[in-house]
């Protein structure tokens, strides 16, 4: 009978060595990723600031040409435009006065209730200086940045003018997603990078809005409560729950599901929440000037 082979001694697995070897690629990966994002951010800011004078110079030329062409309009037309603007100005001044009174009331009530003082927002007026046709409705670059107090996440508003010269309505255009010293990149409400908390005007339900891309020109509102009823055309407003977001700014209106999406306008998402589609209130193709709300 042949003697059986002696059993090979089992190799002891050194756990700490395995952990060390596993940790090295993880740490290296984290370092590479951190380095890439830091490098990307630094280079992006440098590029935007380096080219800023060139683009701004081109904008100055464009504005000068626009002023000259305006001066060539017939006097009657200019006079009627001035009259209309004066009317709008008077209406807006009255509204501002009323808001000042409300602000003072709010401040007094907060003091009485010993609630923390609301710091409010600063408004920074900016011009759209760059856009790319391939992402025309999804993002654009504006002429103000960190030097003017703008930070990532700030809300960007614009004004929709009524067709017969009424006072303009303030609507949400998007959010700042990147800033350099003198410029900022804005993601519009249809850009998937733009997310914020919204509420519906009639049903008073809150949900989370995410852009659905320029091809559909819609955004999806998810996490809506199941119990409420939602109708097409219902107004969507900012809820004030997101960071740096005041309450009650018009974002858009509920609409049908975009073409190619095999779903109803409002669907129940897994039985827990409802989802609805929204079309933005802002005319994204024609934005030229915006107001950025920055924290005080």
């Amino acid at each position: 009978m042949a003697p059986s082979k002696p059993a090979r001694p089992k190799k002891k697995v050194n756990v700490s060595r395995v952990v060390l070897f596993a940790a090295i690629p993880v740490v290296l990966g984290a370092l590479v990723l951190t380095g890439f994002f830091t490098f990307r951010r630094t280079l992006a800011r440098f590029s935007l600031d380096f080219y800023y004078p060139f683009f701004q110079a081109a904008k100055h030329v464009e504005l000068a040409a626009a002023r000259q062409s305006l001066a060539m309009q017939p006097r009657q037309k200019l006079a009627s435009a001035v009259e209309q603007l004066q009317r709008q100005n008077a209406l807006l001044a009255a509204q501002v006065q009323r808001l000042r009174e409300l602000d003072a009331d709010n401040e007094r009530l907060r003091q009485e209730l010993r609630m923390p003082r609301w710091s409010g927002y600063n408004e920074v007026y900016a011009e759209v200086i760059l856009r790319d046709p391939s992402t025309w409705s999804e993002q654009f670059v504006i002429s103000k940045g960190l030097n003017d107090g703008i930070e990532t996440g700030d809300l960007v508003l614009t004004f929709e003018f009524a067709p017969r010269g009424g006072t303009p309505t303030c609507v949400l255009a998007g959010r700042v997603i990147e800033t350099s010293a003198r410029t900022s990149v804005v993601a519009t409400v249809v850009n998937p990078a733009c997310r914020l908390s919204v509420s519906l005007a009639e049903s008073d339900a809150n949900g989370t809005l995410t852009g659905n891309g320029a091809s559909s020109m819609t955004a999806l509102i998810s996490r809506l409560p199941l119990k409420s009823k939602y109708g097409i055309g219902e107004m969507v407003l900012t809820s004030g729950f997101s960071e740096r977001t005041p309450r009650g700014i018009c974002v858009g209106y509920l609409t049908d599901a975009p073409v190619g999406v095999n779903r109803a306008a409002v669907v129940h998402d897994g039985g827990l929440y409802a989802e609805a589609w929204m079309r933005p209130a802002v005319s994204l193709d024609t934005i030229r000037f915006v107001v950025v709300l920055t924290g005080k």
């Binding site: 990307r40 280079l43 992006a44 590029s47 935007l48 380096f50 080219y51 760059l130 790319d132 992402t135 993002q139 654009f140 670059v141 997603i177 990147e178 990149v185 990078a193």
Partner: peptide, 13 residues
């Protein structure tokens, strides 16, 4: 190429 992407605000160059 990278500079142009960053100027136009793209995340991916």
């Amino acid at each position: 190429g990278v500079a142009m992407d960053f100027v136009l605000g793209y995340v991916m160059p």
